Computed example of a mutant assay.
Amino acid sequence: MDIKDHIRSIPDFPKPGILFYDISTLLAHADAWSVAMGRLAKVVSRHAPDLLAGIESRGFLVAAPLALKLGLGFVMVRKRGKLPGPTVAHTYALEYGTDIVEIQSDAVVAGQRVVILDDLLATGGTMNAAIELFRKMGAEVVGAACLIELTFLNGRQRLDVPFNALVAYDQ
Rank of each mutant, 00 (worst) to 15 (best):
86 P>T: 15
51 L>Y: 04
88 V>A: 12
155 G>S: 03
73 G>S: 10
167 V>M: 03
10 I>L: 06
163 F>Y: 13
75 V>K: 03
144 A>P: 08
130 A>Y: 11
88 V>N: 08
96 Y>F: 13
136 K>G: 14
49 P>R: 00
65 P>I: 09
144 A>E: 09
63 A>E: 11
117 L>V: 05
4 K>N: 01
139 A>H: 03
55 I>D: 04
128 N>A: 14
142 V>T: 15
77 V>F: 03
76 M>P: 12
48 A>N: 12
92 Y>L: 12
100 I>E: 14
141 V>D: 01
30 A>G: 00
125 G>Y: 07
127 M>G: 02
8 R>K: 13
65 P>N: 12
3 I>E: 00
144 A>F: 14
78 R>T: 06
114 V>A: 06
80 R>S: 08
24 S>T: 15
129 A>G: 14
60 F>W: 13
115 V>H: 10
118 D>S: 03
49 P>Q: 00
90 H>V: 15
43 V>W: 10
120 L>N: 09
34 S>R: 12
143 G>M: 00
134 F>Y: 06
37 M>P: 01
17 G>S: 08
103 I>C: 08
71 G>R: 13
9 S>Q: 07
154 N>S: 12
155 G>T: 01
76 M>F: 14
80 R>W: 13
39 R>F: 01
152 F>K: 07
2 D>Q: 13
125 G>S: 08
69 K>P: 03
90 H>D: 08
26 L>S: 03
161 V>S: 06
74 F>W: 11
131 I>V: 15
23 I>P: 09
72 L>M: 11
148 I>T: 11
100 I>V: 15
5 D>G: 05
21 Y>T: 06
5 D>R: 09
21 Y>C: 03
66 L>V: 04
124 G>L: 06
62 V>H: 08
169 Y>V: 06
4 K>L: 04
11 P>I: 05
16 P>E: 12
32 A>N: 00
40 L>W: 06
108 V>K: 04
22 D>K: 11
25 T>M: 12
70 L>F: 11
52 L>T: 03
70 L>H: 04
125 G>M: 06
60 F>L: 05
53 A>G: 02
166 L>K: 05
118 D>L: 02
157 Q>L: 07
102 E>V: 14
115 V>N: 08
100 I>S: 06
61 L>P: 06
60 F>S: 01
59 G>P: 07
113 R>I: 11
102 E>F: 11
83 L>T: 13
15 K>Y: 05
115 V>C: 03
32 A>M: 02
105 S>C: 04
82 K>M: 11
47 H>N: 02
49 P>V: 01
67 A>G: 13
70 L>M: 04
87 T>S: 14
22 D>S: 12
6 H>A: 01
124 G>M: 02
1 M>N: 10
111 G>N: 11
128 N>T: 13
136 K>I: 14
94 L>D: 11
122 A>L: 09
164 N>C: 05
15 K>F: 14
107 A>E: 01
14 P>K: 02
93 A>F: 10
53 A>C: 04
50 D>L: 01
106 D>W: 15
72 L>F: 13
